[in-house]
C-alpha cells in the first residue's frame, strides 16, 4: 500500500481545531483572518483549477473567484466536511461553470476511452518498468511529458486523478468535492492510472529518462 501523507494533510489534521475556531472568528467579523485560513490550500485550489481548465490564466482567475466565493459564503459552511474539501468543491464548480461559458466541451481531449466505466480496462503496454527516481522530475522534459499526458485524459478521469494522486485527497473527499459516488471515484481512478501508464510507457518504461542529457541530433522525437 502506498502511504502518502502530505505536509498539507498533516497541517490540516493538526490544525482542525484551530481551523474551526478561525472560521468562527471570521464569521464574527475578523475577516482578515480568512487569508490565513485559505493559505495552506492555495496550491490545491490552483492545481485543481488548472487540471480542469488546462490554461494558467483561466486557472488563476477561477482560483481567485473560488476563494472570494468561499469567503462570501463562509457562514454556510457547516463543518460537516473538511474546510479544504468544501473549498475544492467550490473550485470545481467554478471551473465547470467557466468551461460551460467557454463551451470547452468542444475541445475535449483526444484520448477518450471507449469502454464503459464498468467494463475492464485492458492495459495496452506490458513493458517492464524500473523504478523511476524522483530526480527525474528535475528535468523539464519529464515534467512536460507528465503534464501533457494528464492533459490528454478526458475530464472525468483527469479531475479524479488530480484530486487523489496529485493533491492527495482521500477517496471520500474526492467523491464529495466532485459530487460523485465513491465507487465512481475508484473506477475512474483505476482508469486514469492505467491510461496514464499506457500513454507514458513508450517514453518512460524504456529508461531513456536516465540516459545522459540529449545532445544535438539525439532527441527521441
Amino acid at each position: 500500500m502506498l502511504r502518502r501523507i502530505t505536509v498539507v494533510e498533516r497541517t490540516a489534521d493538526a490544525g482542525n481545531e484551530s481551523e474551526s475556531s478561525l472560521i468562527a472568528r471570521i464569521c464574527k467579523g475578523e475577516s482578515s483572518l480568512f487569508a490565513t485560513l485559505v493559505k495552506p490550500y492555495e496550491r490545491r485550489v490552483y492545481v485543481t483549477a488548472l487540471a480542469l481548465l488546462r490554461n494558467d490564466a483561466d486557472a488563476q482567475d477561477v482560483a481567485q473567484e473560488a476563494i472570494l466565493k468561499a469567503f462570501a459564503n463562509l457562514r454556510q459552511f457547516r463543518g460537516e466536511s473538511k474546510f479544504s474539501t468544501w473549498l475544492i468543491q467550490i473550485t470545481v464548480n467554478e471551473a465547470r461553470m467557466r468551461q460551460r461559458k467557454q463551451h470547452a466541451q468542444l475541445f475535449e481531449p483526444l484520448v477518450e476511452s471507449n469502454d464503459e466505466e464498468e467494463g475492464t480496462y485492458t492495459p495496452r503496454d506490458f513493458a517492464d518498468w524500473r523504478e523511476i527516481p524522483s530526480e527525474a522530475l528535475e528535468r523539464s522534459e519529464i515534467r512536460t511529458l507528465l503534464a501533457k499526458a494528464l492533459a490528454s485524459l478526458a475530464q472525468k478521469y483527469r479531475e479524479v486523478f488530480i484530486l487523489r494522486d496529485v493533491e492527495h485527497m482521500s477517496i471520500e473527499e474526492a467523491a464529495e468535492a466532485l459530487n460523485i459516488s465513491i465507487a465512481s471515484v475508484k473506477t475512474r481512478l483505476l482508469r486514469a492510472r492505467l491510461m496514464l501508464r499506457d500513454i507514458l510507457a513508450p517514453d518512460l518504461a524504456n529508461g531513456w529518462f536516465s540516459r545522459a542529457p540529449f545532445g544535438k541530433g539525439s532527441k527521441p522525437w
Partner: peptide, 30 residues
C-alpha cells in the same frame, strides 16, 4: 507485475509537488 510497477511509478511521479509550481505572485494577487 509490469502493470503494477508502471502504475506505482505513475502514482509516485505525479505525487511530486515539482510537477506543478504555483505561478509567481499568485498568493499576493488573490
Amino acid at each position: 507485475t509490469a502493470v503494477l510497477d508502471g502504475t506505482k511509478n505513475i502514482v509516485h511521479l505525479y505525487a511530486d509537488d515539482r510537477l506543478v509550481e504555483l505561478p509567481a505572485g499568485f498568493s499576493a494577487r488573490w
